[in-house]
Design a binder for these strands. Sequence first.
DNA 1: CGCCGAGTTGAACTGAATCAAGAAACGTGG
DNA 2: CCACGTTTCTTGATTCAGTTCAACTCGGCG
Lengths: 197, 197
Amino acid sequence: MKSLEFNNFLTGNISVTDEMANALLSQCNKLNVAKGTWLLRQGELSKNAYYVETGLLRQYSTDDKGKEHILQFAPQNWFISNRESEYLNKPSSYYIDAIEDSTVCVIKKDLIDNLSAKITGFADFNLQLLHKHIASLQKRITQLQSYPAHQRYLDFIQTYPDVLLRVPQTMVASYLGITPESLSRIRKELANSHRTS
Amino acid sequence: MKSLEFNNFLTGNISVTDEMANALLSQCNKLNVAKGTWLLRQGELSKNAYYVETGLLRQYSTDDKGKEHILQFAPQNWFISNRESEYLNKPSSYYIDAIEDSTVCVIKKDLIDNLSAKITGFADFNLQLLHKHIASLQKRITQLQSYPAHQRYLDFIQTYPDVLLRVPQTMVASYLGITPESLSRIRKELANSHRTS
DNA sequence: CGCCGAGTTGAACTGAATCAAGAAACGTGG
DNA sequence: CCACGTTTCTTGATTCAGTTCAACTCGGCG
Protein backbone atom coordinates (compact mmCIF):
# COMPACT_ATOMS: atom_id res chain seq x y z
CA MET A 1 0.00 0.00 0.00
CA LYS A 2 2.35 2.59 1.31
CA SER A 3 5.17 1.01 -0.63
CA LEU A 4 3.25 1.53 -3.84
CA GLU A 5 3.20 5.23 -3.19
CA PHE A 6 6.90 5.27 -2.50
CA ASN A 7 7.49 3.53 -5.76
CA ASN A 8 6.16 6.55 -7.55
CA PHE A 9 8.88 8.70 -6.15
CA LEU A 10 11.22 9.95 -8.81
CA THR A 11 9.69 7.75 -11.50
CA GLY A 12 9.97 4.47 -9.72
CA ASN A 13 11.99 1.44 -8.77
CA ILE A 14 13.27 2.22 -5.31
CA SER A 15 13.01 -0.89 -3.19
CA VAL A 16 11.18 -0.28 0.04
CA THR A 17 9.20 -2.64 2.20
CA ASP A 18 5.88 -1.93 3.88
CA GLU A 19 7.66 -2.08 7.19
CA MET A 20 9.98 0.76 6.22
CA ALA A 21 7.29 2.89 4.68
CA ASN A 22 4.95 2.45 7.61
CA ALA A 23 7.67 3.12 10.14
CA LEU A 24 8.59 6.33 8.43
CA LEU A 25 5.08 7.59 7.85
CA SER A 26 3.76 6.64 11.28
CA GLN A 27 6.59 8.22 13.24
CA CYS A 28 6.56 11.66 11.70
CA ASN A 29 4.23 14.57 12.25
CA LYS A 30 1.73 15.57 9.62
CA LEU A 31 1.58 19.23 8.72
CA ASN A 32 -0.93 21.19 6.69
CA VAL A 33 0.69 23.81 4.52
CA ALA A 34 -1.50 26.46 2.96
CA LYS A 35 -0.71 27.61 -0.56
CA GLY A 36 1.93 30.28 -0.49
CA THR A 37 3.40 29.56 2.94
CA TRP A 38 7.06 28.77 3.40
CA LEU A 39 8.56 25.71 5.01
CA LEU A 40 12.06 27.11 4.61
CA ARG A 41 13.48 30.50 3.73
CA GLN A 42 16.80 31.59 2.27
CA GLY A 43 19.29 32.09 5.11
CA GLU A 44 17.54 29.79 7.57
CA LEU A 45 18.89 26.50 8.86
CA SER A 46 16.88 23.55 7.67
CA LYS A 47 16.04 21.01 10.34
CA ASN A 48 13.70 18.69 8.46
CA ALA A 49 12.98 16.93 5.26
CA TYR A 50 9.41 16.68 4.00
CA TYR A 51 7.46 13.94 2.36
CA VAL A 52 4.51 15.26 0.36
CA GLU A 53 1.29 13.32 1.00
CA THR A 54 -0.98 15.60 -1.00
CA GLY A 55 -0.48 18.85 -2.85
CA LEU A 56 2.52 20.41 -4.54
CA LEU A 57 5.61 22.18 -3.20
CA ARG A 58 8.60 23.79 -4.81
CA GLN A 59 12.21 24.66 -3.97
CA TYR A 60 13.60 27.83 -5.50
CA SER A 61 16.22 30.54 -5.21
CA THR A 62 16.31 34.21 -6.13
CA ASP A 63 19.06 35.95 -8.08
CA ASP A 64 20.61 39.43 -7.95
CA LYS A 65 17.57 41.00 -9.53
CA GLY A 66 15.05 39.18 -7.36
CA LYS A 67 14.07 36.77 -10.09
CA GLU A 68 12.96 33.33 -8.92
CA HIS A 69 14.60 30.15 -10.23
CA ILE A 70 12.90 26.87 -9.45
CA LEU A 71 15.20 23.99 -8.60
CA GLN A 72 12.59 21.33 -7.95
CA PHE A 73 8.88 20.61 -7.91
CA ALA A 74 7.57 18.11 -5.36
CA PRO A 75 4.11 16.66 -6.04
CA GLN A 76 2.50 13.80 -4.08
CA ASN A 77 4.87 11.09 -2.86
CA TRP A 78 8.01 13.12 -3.37
CA PHE A 79 10.57 14.17 -0.84
CA ILE A 80 11.72 17.73 -0.64
CA SER A 81 14.46 19.16 1.55
CA ASN A 82 17.61 21.19 1.48
CA ARG A 83 20.14 18.56 2.41
CA GLU A 84 23.03 20.95 2.30
CA SER A 85 21.49 23.02 5.04
CA GLU A 86 20.17 20.07 7.00
CA TYR A 87 23.28 17.90 7.01
CA LEU A 88 26.09 20.35 6.63
CA ASN A 89 24.56 23.03 8.84
CA LYS A 90 24.75 25.80 6.32
CA PRO A 91 22.17 28.54 5.93
CA SER A 92 19.86 27.56 3.12
CA SER A 93 20.34 29.08 -0.32
CA TYR A 94 16.82 28.08 -1.22
CA TYR A 95 13.20 28.65 -0.31
CA ILE A 96 10.66 25.86 0.01
CA ASP A 97 7.00 26.78 -0.26
CA ALA A 98 3.62 25.35 -1.21
CA ILE A 99 2.17 25.94 -4.67
CA GLU A 100 -1.08 24.25 -3.64
CA ASP A 101 -2.62 23.59 -0.24
CA SER A 102 -0.68 20.54 0.85
CA THR A 103 -0.14 18.06 3.63
CA VAL A 104 3.37 16.88 4.35
CA CYS A 105 5.15 14.54 6.75
CA VAL A 106 7.85 16.28 8.72
CA ILE A 107 10.89 14.03 8.76
CA LYS A 108 13.45 14.96 11.35
CA LYS A 109 17.07 14.02 10.86
CA ASP A 110 17.04 11.90 14.03
CA LEU A 111 14.22 9.81 12.67
CA ILE A 112 16.25 8.76 9.66
CA ASP A 113 19.17 7.87 11.91
CA ASN A 114 16.93 5.89 14.25
CA LEU A 115 15.19 3.95 11.55
CA SER A 116 18.50 3.27 9.84
CA ALA A 117 19.76 1.70 13.04
CA LYS A 118 16.60 -0.27 13.78
CA ILE A 119 15.21 -1.49 10.49
CA THR A 120 17.25 -3.69 8.23
CA GLY A 121 17.52 -2.17 4.82
CA PHE A 122 16.37 1.28 5.80
CA ALA A 123 19.82 2.81 5.56
CA ASP A 124 20.02 1.32 2.11
CA PHE A 125 16.67 2.76 1.16
CA ASN A 126 17.89 6.17 2.25
CA LEU A 127 21.06 5.75 0.21
CA GLN A 128 19.03 4.83 -2.84
CA LEU A 129 16.97 7.96 -2.47
CA LEU A 130 20.14 10.00 -2.38
CA HIS A 131 21.59 8.28 -5.43
CA LYS A 132 18.39 8.79 -7.32
CA HIS A 133 18.39 12.41 -6.32
CA ILE A 134 21.94 12.82 -7.60
CA ALA A 135 21.02 11.15 -10.87
CA SER A 136 18.14 13.54 -11.47
CA LEU A 137 20.27 16.58 -10.68
CA GLN A 138 22.95 15.41 -13.08
CA LYS A 139 20.42 14.94 -15.82
CA ARG A 140 19.25 18.46 -15.27
CA ILE A 141 22.74 19.92 -15.52
CA THR A 142 23.42 18.02 -18.71
CA GLN A 143 20.20 19.27 -20.23
CA LEU A 144 20.87 22.87 -19.29
CA GLN A 145 24.34 22.57 -20.82
CA SER A 146 23.40 20.70 -23.94
CA TYR A 147 19.94 21.49 -25.19
CA PRO A 148 17.97 24.57 -26.24
CA ALA A 149 14.85 25.65 -24.38
CA HIS A 150 12.32 23.97 -26.63
CA GLN A 151 13.95 20.57 -26.19
CA ARG A 152 14.09 21.02 -22.43
CA TYR A 153 10.40 21.90 -22.53
CA LEU A 154 9.56 18.76 -24.49
CA ASP A 155 11.46 16.69 -21.96
CA PHE A 156 9.63 18.41 -19.14
CA ILE A 157 6.28 17.49 -20.67
CA GLN A 158 7.37 13.87 -20.89
CA THR A 159 8.83 13.68 -17.43
CA TYR A 160 6.34 15.74 -15.43
CA PRO A 161 3.04 15.79 -17.35
CA ASP A 162 1.09 16.11 -14.09
CA VAL A 163 3.08 19.08 -12.82
CA LEU A 164 2.69 20.81 -16.16
CA LEU A 165 -1.07 20.99 -15.72
CA ARG A 166 -0.99 22.19 -12.15
CA VAL A 167 1.43 25.09 -12.13
CA PRO A 168 1.29 28.44 -13.94
CA GLN A 169 3.47 28.63 -17.03
CA THR A 170 5.61 31.22 -15.33
CA MET A 171 6.86 28.51 -13.00
CA VAL A 172 7.57 26.06 -15.78
CA ALA A 173 9.59 28.77 -17.47
CA SER A 174 11.44 29.43 -14.23
CA TYR A 175 12.22 25.72 -13.90
CA LEU A 176 13.49 25.56 -17.47
CA GLY A 177 15.66 28.63 -16.99
CA ILE A 178 13.86 30.88 -19.48
CA THR A 179 11.39 33.78 -19.34
CA PRO A 180 7.62 33.31 -19.44
CA GLU A 181 7.54 35.18 -22.75
CA SER A 182 9.98 32.77 -24.31
CA LEU A 183 8.02 29.78 -23.11
CA SER A 184 4.86 31.23 -24.57
CA ARG A 185 6.54 31.59 -27.94
CA ILE A 186 8.00 28.11 -27.77
CA ARG A 187 4.56 26.67 -27.11
CA LYS A 188 3.11 28.62 -30.00
CA GLU A 189 5.85 27.38 -32.27
CA LEU A 190 5.36 23.76 -31.22
CA ALA A 191 1.60 24.04 -31.71
CA ASN A 192 2.11 25.39 -35.22
CA SER A 193 4.61 22.77 -36.29
CA HIS A 194 2.30 20.10 -34.93
CA ARG A 195 -0.61 21.46 -36.94
CA THR A 196 1.29 21.59 -40.21
CA SER A 197 2.89 18.15 -39.90
CA MET B 1 47.73 12.75 7.32
CA LYS B 2 45.21 11.01 5.19
CA SER B 3 42.42 12.88 6.86
CA LEU B 4 43.97 16.16 5.82
CA GLU B 5 43.72 15.13 2.22
CA PHE B 6 40.13 14.14 2.61
CA ASN B 7 39.38 17.50 4.08
CA ASN B 8 40.26 19.08 0.79
CA PHE B 9 37.53 17.22 -0.96
CA LEU B 10 34.82 19.50 -2.24
CA THR B 11 36.27 22.55 -0.50
CA GLY B 12 36.45 21.13 2.95
CA ASN B 13 34.81 20.34 6.26
CA ILE B 14 33.79 16.75 5.97
CA SER B 15 34.51 15.00 9.23
CA VAL B 16 36.60 11.88 8.77
CA THR B 17 38.97 10.17 11.14
CA ASP B 18 42.36 8.71 10.28
CA GLU B 19 40.91 5.30 10.93
CA MET B 20 38.27 5.77 8.24
CA ALA B 21 40.62 7.28 5.72
CA ASN B 22 43.25 4.60 6.23
CA ALA B 23 40.74 1.80 6.08
CA LEU B 24 39.38 3.08 2.81
CA LEU B 25 42.70 3.82 1.17
CA SER B 26 44.41 0.65 2.32
CA GLN B 27 41.64 -1.71 1.24
CA CYS B 28 41.23 -0.57 -2.33
CA ASN B 29 43.36 -1.25 -5.38
CA LYS B 30 45.50 1.46 -6.88
CA LEU B 31 45.24 1.96 -10.60
CA ASN B 32 47.36 3.96 -12.99
CA VAL B 33 45.33 5.69 -15.65
CA ALA B 34 47.13 7.13 -18.63
CA LYS B 35 45.90 10.42 -20.06
CA GLY B 36 43.06 9.82 -22.44
CA THR B 37 42.00 6.38 -21.23
CA TRP B 38 38.47 5.71 -20.06
CA LEU B 39 37.41 4.32 -16.72
CA LEU B 40 33.78 4.28 -17.82
CA ARG B 41 31.99 4.63 -21.15
CA GLN B 42 28.48 5.68 -22.06
CA GLY B 43 26.25 2.60 -22.03
CA GLU B 44 28.41 0.57 -19.66
CA LEU B 45 27.47 -0.46 -16.15
CA SER B 46 29.61 1.21 -13.53
CA LYS B 47 30.90 -1.06 -10.81
CA ASN B 48 33.24 1.24 -8.93
CA ALA B 49 33.80 4.67 -7.59
CA TYR B 50 37.26 6.23 -7.81
CA TYR B 51 39.27 8.33 -5.45
CA VAL B 52 41.89 10.42 -7.25
CA GLU B 53 45.32 10.26 -5.58
CA THR B 54 47.17 12.20 -8.26
CA GLY B 55 46.22 13.62 -11.62
CA LEU B 56 42.95 14.87 -13.04
CA LEU B 57 39.85 13.10 -14.36
CA ARG B 58 36.59 14.25 -15.85
CA GLN B 59 33.03 13.01 -16.28
CA TYR B 60 31.23 14.05 -19.45
CA SER B 61 28.42 13.24 -21.85
CA THR B 62 27.92 13.75 -25.56
CA ASP B 63 24.85 15.25 -27.22
CA ASP B 64 23.01 14.64 -30.51
CA LYS B 65 25.74 16.30 -32.52
CA GLY B 66 28.59 14.55 -30.74
CA LYS B 67 29.52 17.59 -28.71
CA GLU B 68 31.05 16.89 -25.30
CA HIS B 69 29.58 18.39 -22.13
CA ILE B 70 31.63 18.14 -18.96
CA LEU B 71 29.67 17.42 -15.81
CA GLN B 72 32.56 17.29 -13.36
CA PHE B 73 36.30 17.65 -12.98
CA ALA B 74 38.07 15.51 -10.37
CA PRO B 75 41.56 16.63 -9.33
CA GLN B 76 43.59 15.16 -6.45
CA ASN B 77 41.60 14.03 -3.42
CA TRP B 78 38.26 14.06 -5.18
CA PHE B 79 35.86 11.23 -5.70
CA ILE B 80 34.42 10.53 -9.10
CA SER B 81 31.78 7.98 -10.03
CA ASN B 82 28.50 7.54 -11.76
CA ARG B 83 26.31 6.72 -8.80
CA GLU B 84 23.22 6.29 -10.90
CA SER B 85 24.83 3.49 -12.83
CA GLU B 86 26.60 1.99 -9.83
CA TYR B 87 23.71 1.95 -7.37
CA LEU B 88 20.66 1.82 -9.59
CA ASN B 89 22.16 -0.54 -12.17
CA LYS B 90 21.49 1.65 -15.15
CA PRO B 91 23.77 1.93 -18.15
CA SER B 92 25.87 5.02 -17.69
CA SER B 93 24.93 8.22 -19.51
CA TYR B 94 28.42 9.51 -18.94
CA TYR B 95 32.04 8.86 -19.75
CA ILE B 96 34.84 9.07 -17.21
CA ASP B 97 38.38 9.54 -18.49
CA ALA B 98 41.74 10.94 -17.48
CA ILE B 99 42.80 14.42 -18.57
CA GLU B 100 46.27 13.87 -17.10
CA ASP B 101 48.17 10.70 -16.25
CA SER B 102 46.62 9.79 -12.92
CA THR B 103 46.56 7.26 -10.13
CA VAL B 104 43.25 6.38 -8.55
CA CYS B 105 41.92 4.12 -5.82
CA VAL B 106 39.28 1.75 -7.08
CA ILE B 107 36.46 1.71 -4.56
CA LYS B 108 34.07 -1.18 -4.96
CA LYS B 109 30.54 -0.89 -3.73
CA ASP B 110 31.03 -3.79 -1.30
CA LEU B 111 33.89 -1.99 0.34
CA ILE B 112 31.68 0.95 1.28
CA ASP B 113 29.09 -1.44 2.67
CA ASN B 114 31.70 -3.36 4.65
CA LEU B 115 33.34 -0.32 6.13
CA SER B 116 29.95 1.17 6.94
CA ALA B 117 29.15 -1.95 8.96
CA LYS B 118 32.52 -2.18 10.67
CA ILE B 119 33.69 1.31 11.41
CA THR B 120 31.64 3.63 13.58
CA GLY B 121 30.92 6.82 11.75
CA PHE B 122 31.85 5.56 8.32
CA ALA B 123 28.27 5.35 7.11
CA ASP B 124 27.88 8.92 8.26
CA PHE B 125 30.99 9.97 6.40
CA ASN B 126 29.60 8.41 3.27
CA LEU B 127 26.29 10.21 3.76
CA GLN B 128 28.09 13.50 4.19
CA LEU B 129 29.91 12.96 0.91
CA LEU B 130 26.59 12.38 -0.80
CA HIS B 131 25.01 15.46 0.73
CA LYS B 132 27.96 17.55 -0.28
CA HIS B 133 27.74 16.16 -3.77
CA ILE B 134 24.07 17.08 -3.96
CA ALA B 135 24.81 20.57 -2.73
CA SER B 136 27.40 21.15 -5.44
CA LEU B 137 25.10 19.85 -8.17
CA GLN B 138 22.31 22.12 -6.99
CA LYS B 139 24.60 25.10 -7.04
CA ARG B 140 25.51 24.27 -10.60
CA ILE B 141 21.89 24.05 -11.72
CA THR B 142 21.06 27.35 -10.10
CA GLN B 143 24.00 29.01 -11.80
CA LEU B 144 23.12 27.63 -15.22
CA GLN B 145 19.55 28.87 -14.73
CA SER B 146 20.35 32.23 -13.27
CA TYR B 147 23.59 33.69 -14.51
CA PRO B 148 25.18 34.57 -17.87
CA ALA B 149 28.36 32.87 -19.05
CA HIS B 150 30.81 35.51 -17.86
CA GLN B 151 29.52 35.29 -14.29
CA ARG B 152 29.70 31.52 -14.35
CA TYR B 153 33.27 31.83 -15.59
CA LEU B 154 34.20 34.18 -12.77
CA ASP B 155 32.74 31.74 -10.28
CA PHE B 156 34.67 28.91 -11.87
CA ILE B 157 37.92 30.82 -11.45
CA GLN B 158 37.15 31.35 -7.78
CA THR B 159 36.04 27.81 -7.10
CA TYR B 160 38.54 25.83 -9.17
CA PRO B 161 41.61 27.99 -9.74
CA ASP B 162 43.83 24.93 -9.91
CA VAL B 163 41.72 23.16 -12.53
CA LEU B 164 41.63 26.31 -14.63
CA LEU B 165 45.38 26.17 -15.11
CA ARG B 166 45.54 22.50 -15.94
CA VAL B 167 42.88 21.96 -18.59
CA PRO B 168 42.58 23.38 -22.11
CA GLN B 169 40.11 26.23 -22.43
CA THR B 170 37.90 24.09 -24.60
CA MET B 171 37.14 21.98 -21.55
CA VAL B 172 36.39 24.93 -19.33
CA ALA B 173 33.97 26.14 -21.99
CA SER B 174 32.40 22.71 -22.13
CA TYR B 175 31.97 22.72 -18.35
CA LEU B 176 30.38 26.17 -18.44
CA GLY B 177 28.00 25.18 -21.21
CA ILE B 178 29.35 27.54 -23.87
CA THR B 179 31.54 27.31 -26.98
CA PRO B 180 35.32 27.78 -26.89
CA GLU B 181 34.91 30.87 -29.06
CA SER B 182 32.54 32.44 -26.57
CA LEU B 183 34.89 31.76 -23.69
CA SER B 184 37.74 33.31 -25.60
CA ARG B 185 35.72 36.48 -26.11
CA ILE B 186 34.60 36.55 -22.49
CA ARG B 187 38.21 36.33 -21.35
CA LYS B 188 39.21 39.12 -23.69
CA GLU B 189 36.37 41.26 -22.42
CA LEU B 190 37.30 40.66 -18.78
CA ALA B 191 40.96 41.42 -19.50
CA ASN B 192 39.99 44.71 -21.11
CA SER B 193 37.66 45.85 -18.38
CA HIS B 194 40.34 44.95 -15.84
CA ARG B 195 42.91 47.05 -17.67
CA THR B 196 40.72 50.13 -17.93
CA SER B 197 39.52 50.07 -14.33
C1' DC C 1 61.22 23.55 -41.43
C1' DG C 2 56.41 22.46 -41.74
C1' DC C 3 52.71 20.60 -39.46
C1' DC C 4 49.10 20.43 -36.01
C1' DG C 5 46.05 21.45 -32.34
C1' DA C 6 44.64 25.28 -29.33
C1' DG C 7 43.30 29.74 -29.13
C1' DT C 8 41.76 34.09 -31.30
C1' DT C 9 39.20 37.15 -34.23
C1' DG C 10 35.63 38.62 -37.48
C1' DA C 11 30.97 38.72 -39.66
C1' DA C 12 26.57 36.91 -40.05
C1' DC C 13 23.05 34.74 -37.73
C1' DT C 14 19.86 32.97 -34.10
C1' DG C 15 17.75 31.93 -29.72
C1' DA C 16 16.27 34.13 -25.96
C1' DA C 17 15.79 38.53 -22.99
C1' DT C 18 13.71 42.84 -22.42
C1' DC C 19 10.25 46.25 -22.42
C1' DA C 20 5.74 47.48 -23.30
C1' DA C 21 1.00 46.78 -24.37
C1' DG C 22 -3.07 43.93 -24.75
C1' DA C 23 -6.10 39.88 -24.13
C1' DA C 24 -7.75 35.97 -21.38
C1' DA C 25 -8.65 33.72 -17.22
C1' DC C 26 -9.76 33.83 -12.48
C1' DG C 27 -11.41 34.75 -7.83
C1' DT C 28 -13.73 37.76 -4.88
C1' DG C 29 -17.08 40.81 -3.16
C1' DG C 30 -21.14 43.23 -4.02
C1' DC D 1 -24.55 36.51 -11.46
C1' DC D 2 -22.18 40.30 -12.90
C1' DA D 3 -18.40 43.75 -12.23
C1' DC D 4 -14.00 44.31 -10.67
C1' DG D 5 -9.20 44.00 -10.06
C1' DT D 6 -5.38 40.82 -10.27
C1' DT D 7 -2.69 37.63 -12.15
C1' DT D 8 -1.42 34.90 -16.25
C1' DC D 9 -0.63 34.53 -20.92
C1' DT D 10 0.21 36.37 -25.46
C1' DT D 11 2.11 39.32 -28.97
C1' DG D 12 5.17 42.75 -31.02
C1' DA D 13 9.50 45.43 -31.56
C1' DT D 14 13.99 45.76 -30.21
C1' DT D 15 18.31 44.45 -28.12
C1' DC D 16 21.71 41.29 -26.63
C1' DA D 17 24.30 37.13 -25.55
C1' DG D 18 26.02 33.39 -27.49
C1' DT D 19 26.51 30.31 -31.85
C1' DT D 20 28.30 29.23 -36.19
C1' DC D 21 31.56 29.07 -39.71
C1' DA D 22 35.66 30.46 -41.59
C1' DA D 23 40.11 32.44 -41.59
C1' DC D 24 44.09 33.42 -39.16
C1' DT D 25 47.86 33.39 -35.29
C1' DC D 26 50.69 31.22 -32.28
C1' DG D 27 53.53 27.87 -29.81
C1' DG D 28 55.08 23.19 -29.51
C1' DC D 29 57.07 19.26 -31.61
C1' DG D 30 58.38 15.73 -35.05
